[in-house]
Design a binder for these strands. Structure first.
Lengths: 208, 208
DNA sequence: TCAATAGTGTCTGTTAGACATTATGGA
DNA sequence: TCCATAATGTCTAACAGACACTATTGA
């Protein structure tokens, strides 16, 4: 997450002659490794470590793509979506690129980004992904922003906090953070207490 | 769907000597084809046609597995979940096997079934999967059974119908079907009218 | 007439969203 | 003091689930 937007780790290609020069900026590539003997989940985990110096706070397979060209010449691309907290600095010549302002990517890599973002959105109400985007301690405003980012819509503040409180997912700390003008916000920690209480009601409205 | 339960198309292996004889019944294999030049979605679509003689009413990629042995010796298995209406007869030596009573499968194929079922359950409220399990015309009781099967829980009849009516997803036909004793049930057709009306509220309760 | 199943009407507790108000800091 | 932001209390409309009831068939 960068400036309130989802961001992806990209490595900008070395300018290898005029061939790789493309209108709209330098080309980028996503973290990639060939399929070896180890499980691909382990490979993905290592790629996160190499690119950020820390472990992902959430990771899952998103899709497997076969259509479109890939820079490394692979015939098949297993896509993983991994999450690290906001503010994690990139390492090893990589950089964060907001998903709304990606550098030019190979067609298949652009699809990979779409699939990864889609899988975050699809799974966010089955896994605490929003919390994984935040540091250990956060304000409720920050948490709501993370949810709004993943849901791609505005939420009602009072409703959001009521539902959060009734789910007993966060624990207040004694610290407050002052951010410019207004009243300081209390810092919270993710500390789930309940176990799968209510079941979600059937929702027909989302069906085509 | 067979007898109110999800079922998978399996081909029972020929008894090739005592080696393949396994306690618990003959071994089975899932529909499979090697990765060729065509997109795997197209391969999956063809496999459904070969196994059922008709096109899938819904299909999507579920997972890509690398761990565990696979009968055809593949190093990697791209799993697709496809749906056909209840009552579709198997073809070409295949048979329907209820997911609760599968024949012995290779470890990776057992995982494939789990992944396919999980992807149906995960996506059912974003795609009209329950309707795809039913024939063109169905009773509301049958529809509710399909939903209960996918949700793995009982639903309240009046609530189910109220929500369905307000979503304007089905259209009544003039036909009724008498099934044994009681009052005949009216037949309905899937005929969605609304387009993404209400948004689903944030659900914290499902998060660990 | 009885039994069994389909379909509905009504009530109630819960809750999402709107609105207003208080709390607490900086300028 | 004013302003900006956090946090919270109250009201209301919507709705899920419970229950009871009517409707319509076969036995």
């Amino acid at each position: 997450m960068v400036e309130g937007e989802l961001a992806v780790l990209v490595r900008h290609e070395e300018g290898s002659g005029s061939r790789s020069a493309v209108r709209g900026g330098t080309r980028g590539t996503l973290p990639f490794a060939g399929l070896g003997t180890e499980p691909p989940l382990q490979t993905a985990t290592s790629l996160v470590r190499e690119g950020t110096g820390r472990s992902a706070t959430w990771i899952a397979q998103s899709a497997t793509l076969t259509e479109g060209a890939h820079p490394a010449g692979a015939t098949l691309l297993i896509v993983y979506a991994a999450v690290v907290p906001v503010g994690t600095p990139p390492r090893g010549g990589s950089a964060w690129a907001k998903v709304s302002a990606l550098p030019p990517l190979a067609p298949r890599e652009a699809k990979a980004v779409d699939a990864a973002v889609a899988s975050l959105r699809d799974r966010m109400d089955l896994a605490p992904i929003a919390f994984r985007l935040l540091p250990d301690r956060f304000t409720l405003g920050e948490l709501q922003e993370a949810y709004e980012l993943l849901l791609d819509r505005r939420l009602h503040k009072a409703s959001f906090r009521r539902a959060l409180a009734s789910a007993a997912l966060v624990e207040a700390t004694d610290d407050w953070r002052s951010e410019g003008r207004g009243r300081p916000a209390q810092l919270f920690r993710y500390s789930p207490r309940r176990r799968r209480g209510t079941r979600r009601p059937v929702r027909f409205e989302l069906l085509a």
